[in-house]
């Protein structure tokens, strides 16, 4: 058994840790801050190329069932959203759109935009009405918090029974452990309950929480809230890292490293002038005219030092890796897939 240090607490870091831990490696995952994974819609938009089976196994969860296949859903402003794997209430089977939808808003809260949503639904041939709940929630307050009481759910169910649509579109507000509330609500109101597909909200947080629990369950030691500030590299080998957290700094030794630090949005890569740059100051970064695509270069699966030398025990995965195929919305599938390839490359090393 050997020690692997995984840097980054998003989809790529968590999936690769889980894969490595299942193979008996001793994995420490270091991550700081909210990953892009938590900011995403929590829906996997494109079909991952090579890791469907492992991914399905990785994402099983007792609280939140997934729907898989060609799916469609609606965003919080009513735009259509197509995807491949989503929490069961986020989408319907492609081609089976509801004929009418009631958009539910909460007074004073920007979680859903009823007017825009209704008109965009009508433009898609879906009959739309809207319902404003008599609960006032200040804009900064997370809806999850406002809907913690049984009372607000009862009020919601009662209001939904008065609508005449086939389906209702709710703002995303249920945390992972309470996902079952949407099933209960569906039974209570007799209408299909749809959760608006929303970035920067509970769906992404649920996805990360789920992955986190899976990785921890497989035996990964998770050092949350800590940042790797430097790598100890001798020749072509990563031997350890400097990790800081709170007011403490520690040196850790490792036999291999997976770098899954995300893109420039989460400080995984630096932006220097108009170019991307390696914050560790060690690895080659492949540039691209498209900011979404640039990232760490690799040769036969391994990372490459600035001086052109191929690393013996360091691989990269996720948003921090150069990818010519990365488009808007393909991030999660790409991150999972590249995590699997990174783990394969390490095994071959």
């Amino acid at each position: 058994m050997s020690r692997v240090l995984v840097i980054g607490n998003g989809a790529a870091g968590l999936f690769s840790s889980w894969l490595l831990a299942r193979k008996g490696q001793e994995v420490v995952l270091v991550g700081r801050g909210t990953p892009s994974t938590s900011m995403s819609t929590g829906c996997i938009r494109t079909r991952p190329e090579g890791c469907e089976r492992e991914m399905a196994e990785f994402l099983v969860n007792e609280h939140m069932p997934w729907a898989v296949g060609a799916r469609a859903g609606l965003s919080k402003i009513g735009t259509p959203f197509r995807c491949w794997m989503a929490p069961s209430h986020s989408t319907w089977k492609y081609g089976e759109a509801p004929g009418s939808v009631t958009v539910v808003s909460i007074e004073g809260h920007p979680a859903i935009h009823v007017r825009i949503a209704s008109s965009l639904l009508i433009a898609q041939g879906i009959r739309a009405e809207h319902l404003s709940l008599p609960i006032a929630v200040p804009p900064e307050v997370p809806l999850t918090a406002a809907f913690r009481s049984e009372g607000s759910w009862e009020l919601l169910a009662k209001a939904l029974r008065t609508t005449s649509s086939d389906a209702v579109l709710l703002p995303a507000m249920v945390p992972l452990r309470e996902y079952g509330r949407l099933d209960a609500l569906e039974r209570q109101c007799g209408r299909k309950v749809l959760e608006a597909v929303t970035p920067l909200g509970p769906p992404g947080l649920r996805l990360t929480e789920l992955m986190h629990a899976r990785a921890a369950g497989a035996g990964v030691t998770i050092w949350d809230g800590r940042r790797v500030t430097a790598l100890d590299i001798k020749g072509d080998t990563v031997r350890g890292a400097t990790v800081s957290g709170g007011s403490e700094v520690k040196e850790v030794a490792t036999d291999a490293a997976v770098i899954a630090t995300g893109g420039p949005l989460v400080d995984g890569l630096n932006i220097k002038g108009r170019e991307l740059d390696d914050p560790f100051g060690v690895f080659q970064v492949a540039r691209s005219t498209d900011a979404l695509r640039g990232g760490y270069a690799s040769r036969e699966g391994m990372m490459v030092r600035v001086d052109g030398r191929r690393m013996a025990n360091a691989v990269a995965a996720g948003d921090c890796v150069y990818s010519e195929r990365r488009d808007h919305g393909s991030g999660l599938a790409g991150a999972l897939d590249s995590a699997r390839m990174a783990v394969m490359a390490l095994e071959g090393a």
């Binding site: 801050g33 909210t34 900011m39 200040p138 900064e140 307050v141 997370p142 918090a145 949005l265």
Partner: peptide, 20 residues
């Protein structure tokens, strides 16, 4: 600040009924 709201979602005061 990228206005992602991760901080507001994490805040125990905002998440409390007496926090607003």
């Amino acid at each position: 600040c990228i206005k992602c709201g991760s901080c507001t979602r994490a805040c125990p005061v905002l998440n409390d009924p007496l926090g607003p």
